[in-house]
Design a protein around this nucleic acid. Sequence first.
RNA 1: GGAGCGAUCGCCUAGCUGGUCGAGGGCGCCGCACUGGAAAUGCGGUAUACGGGGUCAACUCGUAUCGAGGGUUCGAAUCCCUCUCGCUCCGCCA
Length: 419
Amino acid sequence: MIPLAELRDHPERFREGARRKREEAPVDEILEVDAGARRLRSEVEAAQAERRRASAASRGAPSPEQRERLNSLRARIQEGEARLAELEARLQELLLYVPNPPHESVPDGDDERSNVTVRTWGEPPRFGFEPLPHHELGDRLGIFDFERAAKISGARFAVLRGEGARLQRALISWMLDVATREHGYTEVLPPYLVRPECMVGTANLPDKEGMAYQLRDDDLYLVPTAEVPVTNLYREEILDAARLPICHVAYTACFRREAGAAGKDTRGYVRLHQFDKVEMVRFVVPESSLDELETLTGHAEHLLRRLGLHHRVLLMCSGDMGFAQWKKYDVEVWAPGMRRWLEVSSCSAFGDFQARRANIRYRPAPGERPRFLHTLNGSGLAVPRVLDAILEARQREDGSVDVPEPLRPYMGGLERITP
RNA sequence: GGAGCGAUCGCCUAGCUGGUCGAGGGCGCCGCACUGGAAAUGCGGUAUACGGGGUCAACUCGUAUCGAGGGUUCGAAUCCCUCUCGCUCCGCCA
């Protein structure tokens, strides 16, 4: 949510922000509704002030004439209030559709072609043979079962078996341990079902309606990412500045309808309706927001370095970054079997955009007025694609796969998965 | 699923025989006094939103806000209705 007062004073900033993001923003309609609401509000307030005075003056025993006048005042006030409530509801609704303008360091561009590679780590692994894509490796190792997944749940679901399931579990545990032990995060294990206001708080609603699974009999959504429950942990709260930054890491399964992705990534363990992800969320003071984004991105990269996986960091251009983000980096890992980059983390700074929606504030110092804090989040990491990269990058000619060093303790010391 | 209780200012709480209640008390916090310094104590201050005025800062005026919405009334935190949320007990279940 963007501040109305700022939009009123500088509408061009938000028009420009939306233009850069290649999105629509109902700026003119907001200005119009706002102007009307303001006019009406002063009228209603004047009438209320009059009623208040008159009612107090005639306290206890209003004369018939006074009574009549007050009754007509009440009618006017009620009518005005009703119309005002409509206008304000409309205004609030419209404000939810104004995108967060990108930070000035965000490059302009239409789509992913304008993203900027800020750094690359490592080299693509070399093989003395033709490396296989992970789904073929997985078949040979017997760790994927897409056919039965489809039988029980449909397309874009996966069943992992044996060492595959174990490897996934190892990745989750290891990533949580690195985040908590080395990067200073506090682990939380949140609910997978959330109320609609949480989805609005993180801006997964109303703009991205249709992305999340909704329950039929209860007004709840299945979380599309841990970002939603974790960010909303402190909704409607005023936090002590001394507590900031608050850093949480959470593992959850994530559920996405992938409605707009028909035909995309249909092969392999890449794009699923349900997948595991470890997510980092930071609540910070506004001043440190963009530094925090670098820190957060660094944490995601660190995991890939430890796994020895070739990866790169992209600064998202304005047209490719999404409605709520202020600035965003994607971290992509190289999958040599498929010969393509896989997005395994998306690290975003939101400014106070989410904090306004979820009403998360902090008190800078005792006695001072509360301010909105800033939120950030980033994957650390999306598990399936990391697993893909591991399989593909660490495969041998005989179809076996070396378990990366850091994960071995989590696999009972297992060094290699063999067919 | 059944029964009951509750929702007030950062936190806890009073008010609920309708006006003097934006709202008392305590805690916390801020300032001052006292002190060598501190504790204790005393005094004062301490909500948010929107709008008007303003050297657009301090500040000041107005209006609203006692879970939400509606009703009764000249006037509602206080009375009535609906809803939401939370808690407790019973049932059920892992």
